[in-house]
Each structure stands twice: as structure tokens, then as C-alpha cells.
Design a protein around this nucleic acid. Structure first.
Length: 468
RNA sequence: GGUGGGGUGGCCGAGAGGCGAGGCAACGGCCUGCAAAGCCGUGAACGCGGGUUCAAAUCCCGUCCCCACCUCCA
């Protein structure tokens, strides 16, 4: 397996810290609002990475955090007159629902920042003791990381502090250097009164970055394999995480994986710009969540996606072709199970998770399968179906997998409808044998009006209910 | 100002010195009573200008445009 490592700006071989195991920490969301599809892209990308490791036989520990306290959450709480935690939690529920709808596997653990204040305190104390952090001298209760005490600061993002613009309007207050960042933020009078914890440095709340260093350490250890997140987190968030952890003597992440962002209208999708597409909007286009997942997983994870309704609809059509084959093949030879993966698919995935090249292999197998279907070559068909399902399963879009086909497909009425349709089809078959095309087509048209679509195949008529 | 990544056929999207990924759309054919689905085939691309090379989408130089980050960000 080869992965692009931001720290060295090159694709390199993945060597796990412990053979057969991989620990991944992914920066999840700040739950200040519901998720948009850019956030979901992040989840899908790492879900595919995770599934690939699982497929390769690794024991995967996958930790994705929830940042449930920050300036925006507090501001919203104040504006709404509600506790900050009720806002964070409401958004966390929305997020979980969207993950589920997209078939994202639940993480091994999903820690919340506010649940790990003691771990943060411990780390901050270590940093102060080691001379890498200092309580502000202005009585604010803030604790800052001393950037100049850590020479490697800037290595991840390739920047030198002296070249940076620096904080234009930030409260320099008691910072020793404009680039120092807060580990702990002292109470401010204009913020909610229930958003604080006591600490050796006075009442306050966590700075943004410290939570990830503290939680990664707790659940993955001092050193772990992969740290992931969006490209926009490279600086300052990940740079600061490295600084905090390494300065405290923790080796921290061995590989840094960053996915590209999803843009809408020439700018990255973000709440503050208001250019946001969420699952509700996608549903309003008639695009299902499996189709959205296909859209998000098809381009390489390091390529920017310029969102458009048309591109999404096009992806939906492409996915329907795959789905169509899987359903038809399963009707013919049974669903079987996801099977052996073609070598080209494996090679593509091993090469920095090239899902786009991998999908080309899926389509090749699809063609083989469709030909076998037409030729009633069941052995070839079975093999093609297993291969296609196996590959789609890695991408998390196997049409026969649980997330996509449960719910509302008729339930108890399926048998009843089956019998009724069979009756109608028998009439149509008789009409066709008389070459009474008008009568045969009338049956088909009436069924269609009732939502039943009839197609003739090499193995006789096939019917499906609505949907496509 | 600093740092990183881009511009590929009508559209989406891989590739990173030589065999034209793949998908969507279009066109032609096959299959079909018709349809649907499918199969076979066709055309078409590397922002622009130079250069290196037997050979450049890929390397070099220049140039234009775009995106992300430089302390809210997936």
C-alpha cells in the first residue's frame, strides 16, 4: 500500500507501526451546524481507506472526533438562549444520521472534546514543564504554546513563521510571539456561563488543537499510523497538533493524509459563504444517498471536486448502470457473496487509493458480466457478479449491501404483488404468442401506470417496482 | 508577500516520457414484434508560447488563469 504523506509531499510505502494493525485518527467536525456534502466527502474518503485496510486483513482502530465546543457553538448558544451543549449535540445527531445514510462505518470510537478535559490538562502541564508553553502573564487565564521553542514548527505545511502574515487583528495580549496559539482559553465574561472547566490556570475551556493531541494519545497511543483530515486543516490545526505532541515527547502520527475539498461555485463549500449543499438538497434532485456516495468516492481523494447538479446526476446514472447489473445478475444466479478482486483493481487501490482507476476495472467486469447475462453463461456471470460486488463493497456502494436495500421495498405485500403481476404477465404472454401486440402492450402499459415496469430479457419478462 | 495543488475530448474524470483508463452524452450497428436493458463499433483531449528528446498531456523555461492555506474551517 502506498499513500501520499503530506509531511514529505510524496507517495510512500505504508508500513504499519505494528504489523497487521493500523491506527487512524481522523479530524471530524465541529458541530456548530449540520453537515454538508463536503464534510460527507471527508467521511466517505476515509471510510474507503478504512475498508481497504480491513480488506487487506488489518485490524483497524479508527478514531474520529467530535469538536463540541468552540467559538461558533458558544455564539449560537448565546444567540439562541440555549445551553451550548444542546446545540452541539443536536448537530451531532444530524451528522450521525447523514453518516448512516451514506453507509459510513461507525468509527471504533468517536470521542468528544469536552469529555477529555483532564487529558488536555495533563498534556498542557507537561508542555509547561518542558518549557514549550506558558500561562499568559496578563491574568487572562490563557495558556499558549511557545512556537519559538519548537524549531520544527512549520515543517508539515512548509511554512516558516517569519514568512507568515501573522494574526492581523488577533488579541496579541500576552503572547510571546504572534504565532503562539492557545492551548487553554480563560473565561470571557460575554460567553455562556456553563462553558467552563476549572484548571490549574484558572477557569476556561480548551483551545481548538489540544483536543486532538490529547484524544489521539488516549485512544491510539503516543505514536500511531495515520492522521487524516481536510486539506484546509493542514495549517494551522495539524501543524499545531504536531507541535504540541512532539514537544511533549510523543512521536505522534507516522503518515499525514489530507483529502481535497469540495467546491461549489469556485469556492470551497462552507457555511460562512453560504454555498452549501446538504443531503436534503441532494434528495430534492432525486439523487439517492448511494448515488451521492458514488459521486463522492469516484474521483481521487486528493482531487478537488467542483460540485454541480449535473455532475451529480451523471454519477447517479453511472451508478444505476452498476446497480442494474447487480440486480439482474442476482435475480439470475443468486446474490452470492462479494468475491475475489481483480488484480488491476487491487493495484489501483494500493496506489494511493486510486478509486477512479479502480472504477475503470469495475466497469470492465461489468461489461463481462452483462455479456454473460445476455449469453446465459451463468458461470461467467457468477464470477463477474462476485467481482463487481467485491469491488463495490470496498467503495461502500454494493447495491445489495445493508445500507441501500433495507426498508420499504414492499415487505409483506411483495408476495401479493408478485402473484398479481404474474397473472398479468401470463395474459401478456398469451397475447404475444398470438402476435396480438396491441393487447400485449396494453398489459405492459397498464402495469407501468401502476408502477410496475416490465422488460423482456433472454430469460423471460422481468419486472421491477417504480424507482428507476 | 509566503506555502501547497491545479488547468485533460461536448461533460465528468484517471494517467505523469512511447502501447489513446473509465463513465456520461452523441453517432452507427447488433439484439428485440415494439420497448427497456445490454453488446460491438466511431469520432473527439491535454490553458498558451518556446525548448529538451527518435518520441512530450507527462520533463525544462516563460506566460496566463483557477483553487486551498497563512490562526473559524472537512
Amino acid at each position: 500500500m502506498r499513500l501520499y504523506d503530506t509531511a514529505v509531499r510524496a507517495v510512500r510505502d505504508f508500513v504499519p507501526r505494528v504489523p497487521g494493525q493500523v491506527g487512524i485518527y481522523l479530524c471530524g467536525l465541529t458541530v456548530q451546524a449540520g453537515p454538508h456534502i463536503g464534510h460527507l466527502r471527508s467521511a466517505v474518503n476515509y471510510d474507503v481507506l478504512r475498508r481497504w485496510f480491513l480488506h487487506r486483513g488489518y485490524a483497524v482502530t479508527f478514531v474520529r472526533n467530535i469538536t463540541d465546543i468552540d467559538d461558533k457553538v458558544l455564539a449560537k448558544a448565546t444567540a439562541a438562549g440555549r445551553p451550548y451543549w444542546s446545540i452541539a449535540y443536536a448537530n451531532e445527531i444530524l451528522l450521525a444520521a447523514d453518516y448512516r445514510r451514506l453507509g459510513v462505518l461507525p468509527p471504533t470510537y468517536e470521542p468528544r472534546a469536552t469529555g477529555h478535559v483532564p487529558e488536555m490538562h495533563a498534556l498542557i502541564a507537561e508542555l509547561i514543564a518542558a518549557g514549550h508553553a506558558y500561562p499568559a502573564a496578563d491574568g487572562s487565564g490563557d495558556v499558549y504554546f511557545d512556537v519559538r521553542s519548537f524549531p520544527a514548527y512549520g515543517d508539515l505545511s512548509g511554512q516558516r513563521p517569519e514568512d507568515m502574515r501573522g494574526t492581523p487583528d488577533g488579541p496579541a495580549r500576552a503572547k510571546r510571539d504572534a504565532h503562539d496559539f492557545a492551548l487553554w482559553k480563560g473565561v470571557k465574561p460575554d460567553e455562556p456561563g456553563d462553558a467552563y472547566w476549572t484548571s490549574p490556570w484558572g477557569p476556561g475551556r480548551p483551545g481548538w488543537h489540544i483536543e486532538c493531541s490529547a484524544m489521539a494519545r488516549r485512544y491510539l497511543g503516543a505514536e500511531f499510523d495515520i492522521h487524516g483530515g481536510g486539506l484546509d486543516l493542514t495549517f494551522p490545526h495539524h501543524e499545531n497538533e504536531i507541535a504540541q505532541s512532539r514537544a511533549a515527547g510523543l512521536p505522534f502520527a507516522r503518515y499525514w493524509v489530507h483529502h481535497a475539498l469540495l467546491n461549489l461555485g469556485e469556492a470551497k463549500m462552507s457555511k460562512s459563504l453560504g454555498n452549501v449543499v446538504d443531503l436534503e438538497y441532494v434528495a430534492s434532485l432525486g439523487v439517492r444517498s448511494a448515488e451521492l456516495r458514488y459521486y463522492l468516492a469516484a474521483p481521487h481523494y486528493r482531487s478537488r471536486i467542483d460540485y454541480s447538479d449535473d455532475a451529480l446526476r451523471e454519477a447517479a446514472v453511472a451508478y444505476q448502470r452498476l446497480e442494474n447489473f447487480v440486480h439482474r445478475a442476482a435475480e439470475r444466479v443468486g446474490p452470492g457473496a462479494p468475491g475475489e478482486l481483480p488484480a488491476d483493481f487491487v493495484a489501483a487501490m494500493e496506489d494511493d487509493l486510486n478509486t477512479s482507476a479502480a472504477l475503470a476495472v469495475v466497469h470492465e467486469s461489468l461489461r463481462t458480466g452483462n455479456s454473460a447475462l445476455a449469453a446465459a453463461d451463468d458461470a461467467t456471470l457468477r464470477a463477474a457478479l462476485a467481482a463487481v460486488r467485491g469491488m463495490l463493497d470496498i467503495l461502500g456502494v454494493d447495491p445489495l449491501a445493508a445500507p441501500w436495500h433495507d426498508g420499504s421495498t414492499g415487505g409483506d405485500l411483495r408476495g401479493v404483488v408478485d402473484a398479481l403481476v404474474a397473472l398479468a404477465l401470463e395474459q401478456r404472454a398469451q397475447a404475444r404468442s398470438r402476435k396480438d401486440w396491441a393487447a400485449a402492450d396494453a398489459v405492459r402499459d397498464q402495469l407501468k401506470q401502476a408502477g410496475v415496469v416490465v422488460e423482456d430479457t433472454a430469460h423471460g419478462p422481468r419486472w421491477t417496482v417504480g424507482e428507476q
